[in-house]
C-alpha cells in the first residue's frame, strides 16, 4: 500500500531532471499528495507530456465513482485482474514523485509515519495504470492507480509493500504507446534497489490530507 507521497519540486527542477518530458508551467511543491488529489503523470500516449490525473483508478464499468476507487494495484496480479488487466496492457503511466510515506503498525500503538526518499534526493517515477471514466452527466475523470511490489530491505522494517519505482532505463518500455503483452512488461515489476534509498520517522501531522507543508518531511525523534 502506498497512500501518500510527495513531489516537492517546481516545473524548472522537474524539467532539469526529466529532460525527455515536457512539463506544464506553474507546478507547485507538494508535501502530502493524498488519494482523490491530482497527481503529475506521463501517460503512454507517445507525447511525453506531463499532465494531471486523479489519484484513484475508477473502472470504466463503475456507476458510482465513489464506491470503486483503487489507489494501488498489486504488480504481481494487476495484469490478470479483471479491473486492471486492460489498463495494464494499454494505459500505463509514470507517476512522478520524490518521496513517499509508509506507516509502521505495531500492536497496541498508533501507526507511525516514515518518509522514504532516494539517498541522492532525486525525483523518481512510480509505475501507474490509468482509466477513463465517464459519468451519466458527461463528467469525465481520468483516474490512476500506483502499482505496488513487495518491500525491499529498506522499506520492509516499516511496511511489507512499496510503490513500484521504475529505473530510468525502463521508462521507454513502460511508456510504449498502445497494447503491450504482459509478458514483456513483467520483468520490470521489481522492487527498487534498497541501497539507493533512505528513510526517517516524520510527524503524524501527515495523517491529515489537509496539511501540505515543508515540515511534514522533516525527521522527528524516533
Amino acid at each position: 500500500m502506498c497512500g501518500r507521497f510527495t513531489l516537492t519540486l517546481t516545473t524548472e527542477a522537474l524539467q532539469q531532471t526529466f529532460r525527455d518530458f515536457i512539463f506544464p508551467d506553474g507546478i507547485q511543491p507538494r508535501y502530502n499528495i493524498a488519494p482523490g488529489q491530482p497527481i503529475l503523470v506521463i501517460p503512454n500516449d507517445g507525447r511525453k507530456q506531463a499532465t494531471h490525473f486523479l489519484w484513484g483508478f475508477i473502472p470504466s464499468w463503475a456507476k458510482d465513482p465513489q464506491r470503486y476507487r483503487f489507489i494501488n494495484a498489486r504488480a504481481e496480479t494487476a495484469w490478470q485482474k479483471p479491473s486492471f488487466r486492460a489498463a495494464f496492457r494499454r494505459r500505463r503511466c509514470l507517476v512522478l514523485a520524490d518521496g513517499f510515506y509508509e506507516w509502521k503498525r505495531e500492536e497496541g500503538k498508533r501507526a507511525r509515519p516514515f518518509y522514504f526518499t532516494m539517498k541522492d534526493r532525486r525525483p523518481f517515477a512510480i509505475a501507474g495504470i490509468w482509466e477513463h471514466w465517464q459519468g451519466a452527466d458527461g463528467s469525465e475523470i481520468i483516474g490512476s492507480a500506483l502499482l505496488t511490489v513487495s518491500a525491499n530491505a529498506c522499506v520492509a522494517p516499516i511496511h511489507d509493500r512499496m510503490p513500484l519505482i521504475l529505473p530510468p532505463e525502463a521508462y521507454d518500455q513502460w511508456l510504449a504507446p498502445g497494447e503491450q503483452p504482459p509478458e514483456r512488461l513483467r520483468p520490470l515489476l521489481q522492487p527498487y534497489p534498497a541501497e539507493a534509498m533512505q528513510c526517517w520517522p516524520v510527524s503524524p501531522e501527515v495523517n491529515s490530507p489537509r496539511v501540505d507543508a515543508p515540515h511534514l518531511i522533516e525527521a522527528v525523534e524516533a
Binding site: A34, G36, Q37, G143
Partner: peptide, 26 residues
C-alpha cells in the same frame, strides 16, 4: 472547499473540470 481539494482546483480547466470535481468528490 476543504484544503485537501485545493490542489485539485489548481488543475481544473473549463466547465467540464468542475463537473469532474463534483463527480470525484460529491
Amino acid at each position: 472547499i476543504s484544503a485537501e481539494i485545493f490542489p485539485l482546483l489548481e488543475t481544473l480547466t473549463g466547465d467540464r473540470g468542475a463537473r469532474a470535481l463534483f463527480a470525484a468528490h460529491p
